[in-house]
Design a protein around this nucleic acid. Sequence first.
DNA 1: GGTCAGAT
DNA 2: ATCTGACCA
Length: 353
Amino acid sequence: MGVNLKDLIPEDAKIIIENMRSLKGKVIAIDAYNALYQFLAAIRQPDGTPLMDSQGRITSHLSGLFYRTINLVEEGLKIVYVFDGKPPELKARELERRRALKEESARKYEAAVEAGDLEAARRYAMMASKLTDEMVKEAKKLLDALGVPYVQAPAEGEAQAAYLVKKGDAYASASQDYDSLLFGSPRLIRNLTISGKRKLPRREEYIEVKPEMIELNTLLSKLNLTLENLVDIGILVGTDYNPEGFEGIGVKKAYQLVKTYGSIEKIPKALLKSSVEVDVLEIKKYFLQPPVTDSYKIEWREPDEKLVFEILVNEHDFSEDRVKNALERFTKAYKENIKGVQTGLGKWFAKPS
DNA sequence: GGTCAGAT
DNA sequence: ATCTGACCA
């Protein structure tokens, strides 16, 4: 779920990316869990059935990962995925909340199928989606075959992605969630896709969605806040580490409280009612100093087309023609946009193939 | 979510 | 050239 800062971000703190070319050559650290989960939830038939191979294994996440990665590389972006590690103990309640929600959704899905309500079936199937360890493993395998790098975070992927951007190893983090901003990412890109039509939930309407970038510094100065203030606001409205937030506090009140008292610690306890015990300081510390690692290498390699074929076509029944065509585009894009412009000695010593 | 082909 | 909708696995 992540922290909901949507209504806190002023329109003029968003940079709408009208043309992907403006990101050409930039390293973008994509929150892998966030991307895979969205593919898994969205790539389904009208009745909610996901794409599956002949052995009944779900392939929606692989389809999304494959085609979107190719599109982004074709636009000249240097993609690196960041995978979650072990979730912190602080997240236990949120994980339990999600598990319960999925269980509930699975029940509602069955009921909707029973009632023949396709629309509801699809909605609940989406909500019931569970990204398994096996799916994550398969995704990493595909990335290895494509020569697209990924970083394994020790804990939260969003924190590691933010760290890559802070260090300058990536230009921006990409996720639908705002958490990487709280983890201090200097730039966050949301809606990072090429084809920008999205169906509004519960409506027969489509809206055009364009990628948008939020710069942390711009955001903080527009709101006249420090990063610590922003973290405090996040905690007041609720984060993965205190999903309940505080009673009656949304972004508006949270902003006022932080502005009035200077920090969450100084807000009178009487104003902060919560159904559960919340260790505010621990959460705050987690956002400001999350576990991250320096042991990663971000290098793009030429795709191993045979291996990609083996995985997608032979193992998972993707159409040979489609994969072939997509790989052709990808290899061409790799050569033009990544290989040709990679710095360092690598290219001089690259093995002839 | 993304592709592809047919319609406009 | 852009849009629509069926299909993808």
